[in-house]
Design a protein around this nucleic acid. Structure first.
Lengths: 333, 333
DNA sequence: CTGTTAGCGCTTTCAC
DNA sequence: GTGAAAGCGCTAACAG
């Protein structure tokens, strides 16, 4: 009692042609006489035939699906990228297998393997850090990979980002311009190049320009969650910070609210610039000043780049940097 | 110059056994002598063999992937469900093809069709409304379907929800208890049974109990976005509402902020209860009073139910209602 | 416990 | 413009 599928063979028989011809019309091959095309199309319609993508994938070695590794769909930064990815994927007739990794290196490798086992035509990876093992898998498989919102200092695989270094530098510049000398930098682990290299460098450069000496106590590494905001804010106070650049919106909201809950006036007593411009930044009061990353576009461009790679087209530049701006809203003066 | 894949045949040859035996060890079939198993495993390891899931899918008619239709990944309500779905899917060795539908009926049908073409073993649908066309596709295909956070009044397919009617009734009860008589109900279109039937009924029941007459001006249908909050709040004021039950968190935040921006004190001058308990409700100030839906669990249970369906196990109850609570936080007195 | 043999449903030469 | 036939890489009887 199986799904009683109707196959290309049934269509061929009913239409009085060969499987090859049916295949041709299904695939839009022009070498079919209009009348037979119509005949076949009619039968397809009548029988309600739907080509089996798995069989097609096996025969053609193309699955028209791409794997997307995401730390957590529930994080607005990543889900915004994912939306851009899916829209462009759909536009190019691809589907997306979405897998959460929690930025856990083991899961990432494991997920990548099952994705490759499923013969995805390409992979988009999000996750802040590329471990050696992951890089090894990337290069071992001949499947194209593009990083979205994720940097690979070695630039071995394609990636789409903004210039995190200057974005952070610009953010600190603003805070310096507003008279601050004790400016904190809060991000996830510095093991992640995006933080430990790019953003931190931008931070240091800005300090240097302003002749402010670097103070370790003002540089915090924390997970990107709302709930640690309280603890982070306490540390910030203890370190004497009067302003902060924060690398994640949820965390920034946590810090903002912790300050507010303690009666600290923002931006009067403390200024804050966050980094992603996810929806959240508009939802707080005051609204958050933020680096405006084109999140949707990062995902979209990454997927577009991947389509080119999968298509073996010539690529002008594997590493694309999208423009960003800084939107000074309510958490800066 | 293809991906130079190594196949089950290569492994068989190298190990000096038949493909069948390799297949057995790969699939954990116990009928293999430990020594040959080890021999095969060694070769697999040495050759770095990875079973081709597409071929496997064609031969076994199981793809171990399920389709997930989601209105928008960027919406925290749905992405929370999706996270629960993916975690359980992973636990049961399934992958997820995630497709955004924007609650657009055409896209939903189209996406469902490509999902079925890809031979997914099951489908999880989110989206508030099941059109006739969709229902027809559901029943025409023999692929199991489960709705997550989505009701089907006809209960033809499996679904996991909370009791939206009593949840809304309870919410209104609280507002009534706080002395309100002009309580608004704001949701998306009443074409969606979840709103037009369940929630609206709950709203009406509560009013009835309190001997408050139903006032059409207090019942608003709006899209679920942050930005319409301003307009909705204006309507609410015009209608003379002093409190509101809102069916979506983003919209609720929009309304809350519109009120705040106009100098309205909350909860003193206006009370608000929202419906999803997404992360957002904790991020506003004041924090939002809300129906606490077990979002992650709804997704998780839906996926679990789907695994049973795909496994043709006996199901005690296709329609499961998970418990909810109401958390009175800062937007109610 | 292991091997042989058909397929799964479709694409893709290669002829005609 | 169309058909025949050989796979794609694997699973699943069926023998032995």
């Amino acid at each position: 009692m199986d799904k009683q599928t109707i196959t290309i063979y049934d269509v061929a028989r009913e239409a009085g042609v060969s499987m090859a011809t049916v295949s041709r019309v299904v695939n839009g091959n022009p070498n079919v006489k209009p009348t037979t095309r119509k005949k076949v199309l009619d039968v397809i319609d009548r029988l309600d035939y739907r080509p089996n993508a798995v069989a097609r994938g096996l025969a053609s070695k193309k699955t028209t699906t791409v794997g997307v590794i995401i730390p957590d769909v529930t994080n607005l930064y990543f889900s915004s990228l994912a939306r851009g990815i899916d829209d462009i994927a759909t536009m190019y007739k691809y589907n997306i297998i979405l897998a959460n990794s929690d930025e856990n290196e083991q899961k990432e490798v494991q997920v990548l393997n099952t994705l490759l086992a499923k013969q995805v035509d390409g992979v988009i990876f999000m996750g802040n850090k590329i471990t050696e093992e992951l890089r090894a898998e990337f290069s071992r498989s001949r499947t194209p990979v593009v990083l979205a919102g994720t940097v690979d200092p070695d630039e071995q695989v394609g990636s789409v980002n903004i210039d995190y270094e200057t974005a952070t530098e610009d953010s600190v510049d603003i805070l310096v311009g507003n008279g601050h000398r004790k400016i904190a930098f809060v991000s996830e682990s510095h093991d992640e190049p995006i933080n430990g290299q790019y953003r931190l460098n931008g931070y240091k450069k800005a300090l240097e320009k302003a002749a402010i000496s670097y103070d370790d106590d003002l540089v915090l590494q924390s997970e990107y969650t709302y709930k640690v905001g309280e603890a982070v804010f306490e540390q910030l106070k203890k370190a004497g910070a009067t302003a902060a650049v924060v690398a994640d919106d949820e965390l920034a909201v946590g810090i903002l609210n912790a300050a507010l809950d303690r009666g600290v006036s923002i931006p009067e007593d403390f200024e804050l610039i966050t980094s992603n411009n996810s929806k959240l930044t508009a939802m707080t009061r005051p609204q958050m000043s933020t680096v405006v990353q084109p999140l949707y576009d990062i995902g979209a461009v990454a997927m577009r780049l991947l389509t080119k790679l999968m298509n073996k087209e010539e690529i002008d530049e594997k590493t694309v940097k999208l423009p960003y701006t800084i939107d000074a809203k309510g958490t800066t003066k």
